[in-house]
Amino acid sequence: MTEIQVLSNSRRRTGSTFLRKHQLIIAPVAFITPAFAMFSLFVIYPIIQSIGLSFVEWQGIGPQTWVGLDNYRELLGDPVFWKALTNNVYWLVLFLLAPVLGLFIALFLNQNVFGIRLVKSLFFFPFVVSQIVVGLVFAWFYDPAFGLLATMLEPLGVKFPAILSNENWATFGIILAGLWPQTAYCMILYLTGLNSVNPEVIEAARLDGAKGWRLLVNIVLPQLRAATFIAVVVTIIGALRSFDLVAIMTGGGPYNSSNVLAYYMYDNAIFRYRMGYASAIATILFLIMDLYIAWFLMRLLKNEKGSR
């Protein structure tokens, strides 16, 4: 055997030994790298680009003018921005009803009785319907002249108010429309979670005298922690990025009373050609989402450590 063959064999052994020692690191990295590259290209890079645009004045075409923090200073004195932010808070608070309603509907549907599959499909239906369709349907419901609710109340002598034309009620009417499909989504998450609940633990708790609310809080809900986490996070993100229903039902009106940050960003970017100002709004919305989700994750991890 020549000296060259000895060297090549030793290199092969060294390479194979290196792969064996580090296979638990190399294999995950090999699988994650393509996905991370795509995520960086289509998510991280646009976020960085949007934050950069918030410091310039730009109409979408032509040269960009550096303005520093002027867009953010203008936001502080913009009453429409504060109204949109307030409406987003309303969305956030009221949308958290969706996980609660979804949980109780899931508990109701998690039964083995005749016809329950048909009932499940009826509750599942809002989830597969487009947000545009939901907006059009509820706009028809709310119509004070020819809407379904007005037609039902007319024989009773009750005049149904024009909800979407009322500055005080438009936002809440849209939120109610958004709760319909969001509750269906949370219901699906909890139905999936209930399939993984340990029946032996439930039976043991019943033998110990636990039932009703006590059984739900102390036995069932701890086993639904993963479903609750997903339901709450998705609901929060859906509330903060609410756009479709506002655009379809009111267009932010009347008089910007139902405007939200996502729609106000869209309005400034598309109709007013203020890309920098719209990017500043997007950055604020992005920071709000990040702060809330980070707080929720820290609280969840703290609870996980405390339960061990």
Rank of each mutant, 00 (worst) to 15 (best):
L221D: 03
F18C: 00
L92S: 13
Q131C: 02
L207M: 15
L76N: 03
A27Q: 10
K21W: 12
Y255K: 05
L224H: 03
N87T: 05
E203N: 11
P181Q: 01
A106I: 07
A106Q: 11
I270M: 15
G68Y: 13
A278T: 05
A269N: 02
Y142V: 00
F18I: 02
N168E: 15
V217G: 03
S242H: 12
A227Y: 09
S307F: 04
A204V: 10
T228M: 08
V89F: 14
I288T: 12
S40F: 12
Y45S: 07
T183G: 02
G252W: 05
E200Y: 12
P161T: 01
L85Y: 15
T192L: 13
P144N: 03
P34Q: 01
I132H: 06
I32H: 12
Y72L: 05
R272F: 13
K21Y: 14
L240G: 06
F81P: 10
F31K: 04
L97D: 05
Y190R: 01
T151L: 10
N198T: 06
L207T: 14
F36L: 13
E57M: 05
F114A: 11
E74Q: 15
L107R: 10
L96Y: 00
V197C: 10
G193V: 02
F124Y: 15
L75D: 09
D244I: 02
H22T: 08
A139G: 15
E203I: 05
M265F: 08
R274Q: 15
A226F: 14
A150C: 09
S50M: 12
K120C: 03
V129N: 02
A35I: 12
F95P: 09
M1E: 13
S54L: 06
A247V: 02
F125T: 09
L153T: 05
I237K: 12
P144H: 04
A231F: 11
V129G: 02
I116A: 03
N88V: 00
A106R: 05
Y142P: 04
L75K: 06
N218M: 13
V100Q: 07
G60A: 02
I202L: 14
G251H: 09
G251N: 03
S10E: 13
S242P: 06
P28F: 11
F229R: 08
A84D: 07
W213V: 09
Y90N: 04
A98E: 03
P126T: 00
F36A: 11
L224I: 01
Y266M: 06
S8G: 00
P222E: 11
P46W: 07
D244Q: 01
V128F: 14
A145H: 15
K305Q: 13
G147D: 08
F95N: 11
F39Y: 13
M187Q: 05
V260W: 08
S40N: 14
I25T: 09
I248Q: 07
V133Q: 08
W82I: 00
L96H: 12
L224C: 01
A210W: 08
L75Y: 08
L148N: 04
G115T: 10
F114W: 15
Y266P: 02
V67A: 06
D143C: 02
E167A: 13
V29A: 12
L96P: 09
W295N: 13
G238D: 11
